[in-house]
């Protein structure tokens, strides 16, 4: 049987590539390759050879033009060396081929600014939502409770009972839509897979700090209607073992952290559908 292969893109300010690759391996991927964007632009590494693409946290280009804006521009306009293929075509093909993409934090920002999410009607390059400055006006590192929508089509959230607990670490995580219609459709189609909530995972909340950025409808993460593309602001790769939990010295916790399930689900999906 062929290997399940995950790729984590790094370079130009991406920071979480190491732990994202680690989470992929723990989650069950046979291979997790950290690829520098330079190696992709040079044609040495091709997205086509992978099943699961991780766009992970960091500060692409310093977030200088707004988070992930410069990278979105780069991916749309850069050409792969020695070919006349635009890099964006590799992304489009990856999506068309039914493969999985997970964007975390800066990676989520990149996905929405490229237009990959929410990806209505198969349109993956048309921006309709954004992530902008937290209402508190500052970068925050704190742990958040995320309530899952069990009706979400997301491949990644399958089997999550009530919700998961993950750290958020961002300055630009406030989710906004271009119109009420977009927001309504996200809700109607259960694309808002994760919402900020209290410790009981009951109701979504707009209260700081449980909702650390003021996201509309407390949205922390969304998927596309196929469920194969997903982005979220909190970091699942940062909680794959109990020692990463802020209270592990005082609570009885299982060996595995809450975030690992996203990678396990991805690996299982790939094994069943893509190899």
């Amino acid at each position: 049987m062929a290997n399940t292969r995950a790729i984590v893109i790094t370079g130009n300010g991406t920071n979480c590539e190491m732990e994202a690759a680690h989470a992929c391996r723990l989650g069950g991927f046979d291979e997790a390759v950290i690829a520098h964007i330079a190696e992709i632009l040079s044609g040495d590494i091709r997205l086509d050879d992978f099943h699961f693409l991780n766009l992970t946290g960091g500060f692409l280009d310093g977030d200088d033009l707004g988070s992930a804006k410069a990278q979105a521009n780069r991916l749309k306009h850069a050409t792969v060396a020695g070919t006349c293929e635009k890099l964006v075509e590799q992304f489009s093909r990856f999506i068309r081929d039914g493969k999985l993409i997970l964007g975390v934090c800066n990676g989520f920002q990149l996905m929405v600014k490229m237009g990959m999410l929410p990806g209505f009607d198969g349109k993956y390059l048309a921006q309709s939502v954004t992530l902008t400055h937290n209402d508190c006006g500052r970068f925050q590192d704190r742990w958040t409770y995320l309530k899952v929508d069990p009706a979400s089509p997301s491949v990644f959230t399958r089997g999550i009972e009530k919700g998961i607990y993950l750290p958020m670490r961002h300055g630009e995580g406030k989710f906004l839509c271009d119109s009420d219609a977009t927001l309504e459709r996200i809700e109607r189609e259960h694309l808002a897979a994760f919402k900020y909530c209290g410790p009981d995972y009951a109701a979504a909340t707009m209260e700081f700090p449980a909702n650390p950025n003021g996201s509309v409808n407390a949205i922390a993460g969304i998927c596309d209607p196929t469920g194969r593309l997903m982005g979220l602001m909190p970091h699942p790769e940062a909680f794959v073992h109990y020692t990463q939990h802020p209270r592990w010295t005082r609570e009885q916790l299982p060996e595995e952290g809450d975030g690992l399930i996203l990678y396990k689900n991805a690996a299982e999906y790939v094994r069943k559908n893509l190899v």
Binding site: N15, C16, M18, E19, H22, A23, G57, R138, F139, Q140, D141, R142, W143, P167, R169, H235, E237, A238, V240, T243, Q244, P246, R247, T249, R250
Partner: peptide, 22 residues
């Protein structure tokens, strides 16, 4: 302290803040 990312790279074991309410 909350303005500084103290967890990137995934190896955080004892964080700057701890206890029942972090």
């Amino acid at each position: 302290v909350r303005r500084y990312d103290h967890e990137v790279q995934g190896g955080s074991v004892i964080k700057p803040f701890t206890g029942v309410a972090n």
